[in-house]
């Protein structure tokens, strides 16, 4: 436990944890202090897809990339699962996740192997996977076994399943970053040329960062489809900006090399709670996108200002 605490303290996530705590307290008070595991579970259910797709974006940003196709990959995986569930639960899930891995591998091939621009490549694959999702499932629907949703809403060990999954994905991310792969991801983001010269197989590691991102996005899409009891070919659009937002809010600079998965989880929580607070404040949906945009710009801009200040002090 102390190790956990110290790892949070040492990371750049501290600010995000503080903001989250503040927002969570506000949320709690507004809710009239009726805090319960049900509430926490509810929040976890809402935030989980964003956490997972945010983690996906995190691994790509870590190696100085960006992936705009993660949302559409979610849509493909969710739609595939919704269409394929009649064939059996296991093959449906396997194919849905494999689609994510494949999509990530395509991005990785074009970006890491052929050194094409991440922005344009993923813009293009965004269009491709958006199209594929529409072909697989032209309108939201499909069949999701009720049993799966029951599993997701169950409360093993008195804890809501979604909360367990949330912690699980956070641990998964932290574990990946504790391996040699994670260390090399940070090395590439820190100084690509030095990493290459040190013997790190930069192209291969970067490729796997995109594959991992594709896989995680597919997980997020699958979860979204199951929890809403339907596949949807168009859910992706709503996740492109927030996934980057979660990464940025989590204290991860877009030039890569730094930041922790816990920070990203916090970033996702912050964005989601802000959404809930807006709902409570009875503000129209319109504000959500406006505020998301403003937050993203302000946070990145503030980081730039902070860096200047730090430079000025270091002088």
């Amino acid at each position: 436990m102390t190790r956990w605490l110290s790892s949070i303290r040492n990371s750049e996530a501290l600010g995000s944890v503080a903001i989250f705590a503040l927002l969570f307290a506000t949320y709690f008070v507004l809710k009239g202090c009726r805090y319960s595991f049900f509430e926490a579970g509810n929040l976890a259910t809402n935030v989980l897809p964003l956490v997972v797709v945010g983690l996906a974006q995190y691994f790509v940003v870590l190696v100085r990339g960006i992936d705009l196709s993660l949302g559409p990959i979610m849509a493909v995986s969710g739609s595939l699962a919704a269409v394929l569930f009649p064939l059996g639960i296991v093959p449906a899930i396997a194919i849905a996740l494999a689609a994510g891995v494949l999509a990530g591998a395509l991005n990785g091939l074009l970006i890491a192997r052929l050194s094409l621009s991440p922005i344009v490549v993923t813009l293009a694959t965004m269009s491709v996977w958006d199209g594929v999702a529409l072909i697989v499932l032209p309108v939201p629907g499909g069949t999701i076994p009720a049993f799966l949703q029951a599993v997701l809403t169950s409360e093993p060990a008195l804890l809501p399943m979604s909360l367990i999954l949330l912690v699980g994905f956070a641990l998964l991310g932290t574990w990946i970053m504790s391996t040699r792969f994670g260390l090399q991801l940070r090395a590439i983001g820190g100084d690509e040329i030095a990493a290459e010269a040190s013997g790190v197989k930069v192209a291969r590691i970067r490729f796997f960062a995109y594959v991992l991102a594709g896989f995680l996005a597919a997980c997020a899409g699958l979860y979204f489809a199951i929890s809403t009891m339907a596949g949807s070919p168009i859910i992706g659009d709503g996740y492109v900006l927030p996934s980057i937002g979660a990464v940025v809010l989590g204290g991860v600079p877009l030039i890569g090399g730094r930041g922790s998965p816990i920070g990203v989880v916090m970033g996702a929580l912050i964005l989601t709670i802000i959404g809930s607070l807006l709902y409570f404040a009875d503000l129209a949906d319109f504000y959500q996108s406006l505020i998301n945009g403003v937050i993203l710009i302000v946070v990145v801009g503030a980081a730039a200002v902070r860096d200047w200040a730090r430079e000025a002090l270091a002088r």
């Binding site: 090395a187 820190g190 040190s198």
Partner: peptide, 20 residues
């Protein structure tokens, strides 16, 4: 001459970049 160490990592991380 141009160093192949990664500045934002620690000395230990750099030493064990390939084998830890």
């Amino acid at each position: 001459q141009e160093l192949a160490l990664i500045g934002n990592l620690t000395v230990a991380d750099n030493l064990f970049l390939l084998k830890a």
